[in-house]
Write a protein that binds this DNA or RNA. Structure first.
Lengths: 265, 265
DNA sequence: CAGTGGTCTAGACCACATG
DNA sequence: ATGTGGTCTAGACCACTGG
């Protein structure tokens, strides 16, 4: 299911003219700039200028390739790059869609999410993808200071901005520490509320690690991205006032749509 | 010029057998895993196991494709991914080389570089790519709290580990603040020493921003990467004890070879 | 079922670096 | 002059999704 409803039939007509417009001017010599890069330039500008709306479905690849007078493979290189940058999503068997993305998105990683966000708080929400109990792996056991195999709660969520997924987090908690996790979370959809319900009034982020990688299939599904697209990954640990770890959180962000800010307090 | 001298003629023979080995077992059904991914798996494992040494030149693309019995384009998808991950570098007109890369590389971004590094300090060094004076742009003027167009010093460097570039930084300083920058830097190759020579004994990092992008041509040259490969970018500001900005630093890191650590002090 | 994107082949020409 | 990687074409079949 698309994060944003796809454009209706009325927009389909508009897309025909969009394709005509964008492919009207002949492409330049390939010696100056590779053909696929020229197509990339035009399509990117077209998306950024809003000539084609968020959520709209593009014409088929064959059709676009024909309009530009290039081979489909050549066109696909341009599309691949636009997908890497989060402008487009390809859904196999369905089509290619314009992916809503902020031109730039800034979040201070050592604060709570809503406190650090630019713009209206009302535009943001959270979508819970899953919550389940499982056995602690070597990594989660280490990060939560519990024994391997003991029960952990795994919470899979996506932050949403204007109906568009911004980033995904998979959070781990020691089940023994939060026996009422599920009901408390169901009420509020808030981890901080679950903490409060268990007597943890404050918590603090002690460490954040940032690395890069490529979107897994589940990343792609959660973030409305094409699989294997490059992403930013974060790993963060939160501790309670006594310094005991209470949360280990893994984040995945589309590579080029976010800027993480770390400030010295 | 390669960062690591390429393997000599003796290794060329070894590479012939490397190719025979890696392509000996027939590829599986493409329905199970895409052919290019199967080739990617094998080549990556081969590089990680050290079956092919750092700096060695691979056989030509046509030759590798023939050995696997696949089309060159199919092979190139595997190579592209390996380049994205920093395992290989392609040099147009020359060949493809195994790129030395640490399996994982951890650096605490709010400390000095050498203080934060894993392993022997002696293995690390810095290579200065350029140092020049230019007019402050809107961005650098803002970050250094100086007026647009006033003189700034631009220092372009690469951090090197075991002869292999790890990351690139482009640093900006207000020229008025450091009149003796070039001679002081020439002596020590150290920015901290330049600061000390101008009476700045201590400085502090106040902010680091992390984002993602793709290697520019100069990034690729400095880091020994294939152009357009995904990278991590950092932007950091350092201030003197009075809180005045003295350095603005832009870093570029191969996407998957580094982990940045931000700790709460 | 028809249409989509994903993969693969078999060629070809080019710009580039090196000997 | 030769060999390299970079680009592009013209086909083809597949798996998947939706009506």
């Amino acid at each position: 299911m698309p994060a944003v409803e796809r454009a209706g039939a009325a927009d389909k007509h508009a897309l025909g003219s969009w394709l005509e417009e964008i492919s009207a001017t002949p492409l330049g010599e390939k010696s100056e700039r590779a053909i696929w890069l020229q197509i990339y330039d035009r399509m990117r500008a077209s998306v950024e200028d809003g000539q084609i709306g968020f959520g709209a479905q593009l014409p088929g690849e064959h059709q676009i390739a024909d309009a530009f007078g290039v081979n489909r493979i050549t066109l696909r290189r341009a599309l691949a790059r636009l997908q890497d940058e989060g402008y487009l999503v390809a859904r196999k068997g369905v089509g290619i869609f314009v992916r809503p993305r902020p031109t730039r998105y800034t979040v201070a990683s050592d604060q709570g999410f809503l406190a650090s966000v630019d713009g209206a708080v009302a535009d943001y929400s959270v979508r819970t993808l899953g919550i389940q109990r499982e056995a602690a792996t070597v990594m989660t056991a280490d990060k939560l200071s519990i024994s391997i195999g003991s029960e952990v709660i795994r919470l899979d969520r996506v932050r949403v901005w204007l109906n568009q997924p911004i980033y995904r987090t998979v959070k781990y908690f020691a089940a023994a520490r939060f026996p009422q996790f599920e009901p408390a979370y169901a009420e509020s959809q808030s981890v901080a509320a679950v903490f409060r319900a268990h007597g943890v009034a404050h918590f603090e982020r002690v460490e954040t690690r940032v690395s890069g990688g490529f979107a897994t299939a589940s990343d792609a599904e959660a973030l409305d991205l094409t699989p294997k697209t490059p992403v930013l990954r974060t790993a963060a640990s939160n501790v309670d006032p006594d310094g005991r770890p209470i949360e280990y959180s893994l984040g995945t962000w589309p590579l080029t749509t976010v800027e993480l800010v770390f400030e010295r307090p």
